[in-house]
């Protein structure tokens, strides 16, 4: 990329109608950029000829009717009764290889780790864990400041299991309730945590940029 030209995004926005005198002046004097914008105009005409707005919107309505709004959670993670959950205890001093962290609006950051109990042995894991049926899991959340947080498990197939819904948590380490057991057919998923808006966006658009993630792989 060079300093001489506007970025492609700026050119795309100018072409789409954004009022930007600087970019417009550049395009008026630059053959390459003018050719690029002219090509975009031809692509617009081609799409409008192929799928006029009315036709596209009819297709979209049919697609919306055929596709459920919220894919169902497939229920392979089950809550463990309180007594059994006590066996999955907090591990202190054993650090995972690396934490994923994300900054929160208004300051502070959040990190996730997973405490897993398998065959009587506990391990603390981040940023990923490969599940097996029978594993017992607890999600550990670390906040550097008091914040409103949502946490849940987002399946690759789209289902979502909320664990914390827009709750205010103090700074420090939190081991979330309930503990969970992996059932017989785990689905590859991602534990996500962040501000409620960011978690909602991750669920609906799979945009994971503003949430902290912990990958749950399913053993083949």
């Amino acid at each position: 990329m060079t300093e001489a030209h506007p970025s492609p995004l700026q050119l795309d926005e100018l072409h789409a109608g954004k009022d930007d005198a600087t970019v417009a002046a550049h395009v008026a004097s630059c053959r390459a950029c003018a050719d690029y914008v002219a090509a975009l105009a031809r692509e617009r005409e081609a799409l409008q000829a192929e799928w006029p707005s009315q036709v596209f919107m009819r297709r979209l309505a049919a697609r919306a009717a055929a596709k459920p709004r919220w894919p169902r959670w497939s229920r392979w993670l089950v809550a463990i009764p309180v007594m059994a959950a006590a066996a999955v205890a907090l591990l202190v001093g054993l650090q995972p290889a690396s934490f994923d962290t994300v900054r929160l609006k208004g300051g502070g950051s959040v990190a996730l780790a997973l405490i897993a109990l398998r065959d009587g042995v506990q391990e603390r894991n981040a940023p990923a864990f490969t599940m097996r049926p029978g594993d017992q899991l607890r999600i550990e959340l670390t906040l550097t400041e008091r914040r409103v947080i949502s946490v849940g498990v987002l399946e690759d197939t789209g289902g979502f299991l909320p664990l914390v819904e827009a709750a205010t948590l103090d700074a420090g380490l939190h081991v979330l309730e309930p503990a969970l057991r992996v059932d017989s057919h785990p689905t590859a998923s991602t534990v996500i945590a962040g501000s409620p808006d960011a978690v909602q966006r991750a669920i609906t658009t799979r945009d994971l940029l503003a949430v902290v993630t912990l990958r749950l792989n399913a053993q083949p």
Binding site: E43, R44, A46
Partner: peptide, 17 residues
């Protein structure tokens, strides 16, 4: 519906590209 149609007319070809 109308808002999405307007978005599609303005940006659909760019998204497709």
């Amino acid at each position: 519906h109308d808002e999405v149609a307007a978005l599609y007319e303005a940006y659909g070809h760019l998204v497709r590209r």
